[in-house]
Design a protein around this nucleic acid. Structure first.
Length: 492
RNA sequence: GGGCCGUUAGCUCAGGGGUAGAGCACCUGACUUUUAAUCAGGGUGUCAGAGGUUCGAAUCCUCUACGGCUCACCA
């Protein structure tokens, strides 16, 4: 048989036709297995101890490796639970079955039935007397030893990445367990999980540029949410005293190793709590998650080991910025003077930056990269926190903290602003900055939310956490794309 | 958006003006406990795409597409 000029897919297609010609259906509707691969291996291990007679098992999965010895063949079969080895002998299966092997390729799904035994080298193996093709694969799998390296291909065809990399499979297992652990932690504390709208007439609740879309029937532009904050606070007003949402938010900004246009946040709000209570909750929650997914609170990250054991270090934002940048932003009460001070230090500054954004620049340039071990920075200037409550003893600051680890911000929390008149003034100040500076990312006025606040909101502690970044920390990944199954790429 | 780097067989990668290469995968044959099976034979290709320079381009130049890192922006 010549295969010159034939692609690998054409070869497989030819095998498919041969199978059909022999009356073998390459895509049967179902197969009943008795055990997952993991269960089958465990079954043998348990029963072997008792030297009991082990019955037959049927298992199913994708063929990931094949070792053809002529009159005997070994196959590796993988399902969602793990791998098990199959062993076929030509003198112990029908000719039809052994011939079927010739037209089965790496990547095909099969079901196999037989008795368990242990090979000379000690591997639990199914001594197969019957195999059934469950699904023919028409394209070759990635290389078995190096796997899939091409980053673009890994993201665009994530299924191939998952097939060929145990490490990648594990990252997404951990991600799933992180989210489950968050739910468990909050549900245990009587928080109620809710879902709030993604399509909104006004995208408010954070400083970010939104995506815009259009509703045809309403003939109205809508925005994709940039935060869940304002709707969750409406629910606090509505009497749901402990509420949270884990959900996707969307920000129309740059893409980088730390930013994906859609990402997952946890936001939680607790009535009659303040930011000190939230701080305690955050360190306990992250410790709980780390313990659940890793069994330890000391997580490797690059060259470092991050110790999430509470209590985390606490410092004041102003002190920390002063210590690391040499600038005390309280010496500069307006944007212009602060800008000059920063330029004198050789810092590049956007001409239109507000005072809040300048301070944020100091934080992200000089402080954030140095916060490897978990740290809370407390008490932010009111300029950069339009939704947080002022400190009673100093109205220029608010009761706000951010949590950092691994040089990244992972949490942002405050005692929520519940004074509707102050909130209105803060929104108006943001609107003024927007029109004056043309800053598309300033906070937007949400009139409907103001009406809600006027009905009265109890003192409340609120939290926002970047779930993707938390997963990065807990899986030792440098890029957010490694913890998002299908990260945003330019379409081809 | 700027800068730098990359794109060669299904996959992982060499090659850098003169006949398109290797390992794995694949195909043919041998082999009844292998496991990166082994042994013998076979190269399956729009060198990302389009122009240009040259007697001759995968190789040099320009543009385009996509990706990575980084800066800017943000969480």
């Amino acid at each position: 048989m010549s295969d010159r000029g034939e692609g690998l897919a054409q070869q497989r297609l030819a095998k498919l036709e041969r199978l059909r010609d022999r009356g073998i259906e390459p895509y049967p509707p179902r197969y009943r297995r008795t055990h997952t691969n993991q269960e089958a291996v465990a079954l043998f291990t348990e029963q072997a101890k008792e030297e009991a007679n082990i019955g037959e098992v049927s298992v199913a999965g994708r063929i990931t490796s094949s070792r053809d010895m002529g009159k005997a063949t070994f196959l590796d079969l993988r399902d969602g639970s793990g791998k098990i080895q199959l062993y076929l002998r030509s003198d112990q299966v029908s000719k039809e079955i052994y011939d079927l092997l010739k037209d089965i390729d790496l990547g095909d799904f099969i079901g196999a039935r037989g008795k368990l035994f242990r090979t000379r080298t000690g591997e639990v193996t199914v001594h197969v007397h019957e195999i059934v093709l469950l699904a023919k694969s028409l394209r070759p799998p990635p290389e078995k030893w190096h796997g899939l390296i091409d980053v673009e291909k890994r993201y665009r065809q994530r299924y191939l990445d998952l097939i060929s990399s145990e490490e990648v499979r594990n990252i997404f297992r951990v991600r799933s367990r992180v989210i489950a652990a968050i739910r468990h932690f909050l549900d245990e504390r009587d928080f109620m999980e809710v879902e709030t709208p993604i399509l909104l007439p006004v995208a408010a609740g954070a400083m970010a540029k939104p995506f815009i879309t259009h509703h045809e029937a309403l003939d109205q532009d809508l925005y994709l949410r940039i935060a869940t904050e304002l709707h969750l606070k409406r629910l606090i007003i509505g009497g749901i005293d402990k509420v949270y949402e884990i959900g996707r938010v969307f920000r129309n900004e740059g893409i980088s190793t730390k930013h994906n246009p859609e990402f997952t946040t946890l936001e939680s709000y607790e009535a009659y709590a303040d930011y000190n209570d939230v701080m305690t909750m955050v360190e306990n929650m992250v410790a709980h998650i780390a313990h659940e997914v890793a069994g330890t609170l000391k997580m490797p990250l690059g060259e470092d080991v991050i110790d999430f054991t509470p209590p985390w270090r606490r410092a004041y934002l102003r002190d920390e910025i002063k210590a690391k940048s040499g600038i005390d932003f309280e010496d500069y009460q307006d944007a212009d003077s602060l800008k000059r001070a920063m330029q004198d230090k050789g810092i590049e500054v956007e001409p239109n930056a507000s005072r809040g954004r300048l301070i944020d620049k100091l934080l992200s340039t000089f402080v954030e990269p140095t916060l490897i071990q978990p740290t809370f920075l407390m008490d932010y200037p009111v300029d950069m926190s339009p939704l947080a409550k002022r400190k009673a003893d100093n109205p220029r600051f608010v009761e706000r903290f951010e949590g950092f680890a691994g040089g990244m911000e992972i949490a942002n929390a405050f005692t929520e602003l519940n004074d509707p008149l102050d909130q209105q003034e803060r929104f108006m100040e943001q609107e003024r900055l927007r029109s004056q500076l043309g800053d598309e990312e300033t906070e937007r006025m949400d009139e409907d939310f103001l009406v809600a606040l006027e009905h009265g909101m109890p003192p409340t502690g609120g939290l926002g956490m970047g779930v993707d970044r938390l997963v990065m920390l807990l899986t030792n990944q440098k890029s957010i794309r490694e913890v998002i199954l299908f990260p945003q790429l330019r379409s081809r």
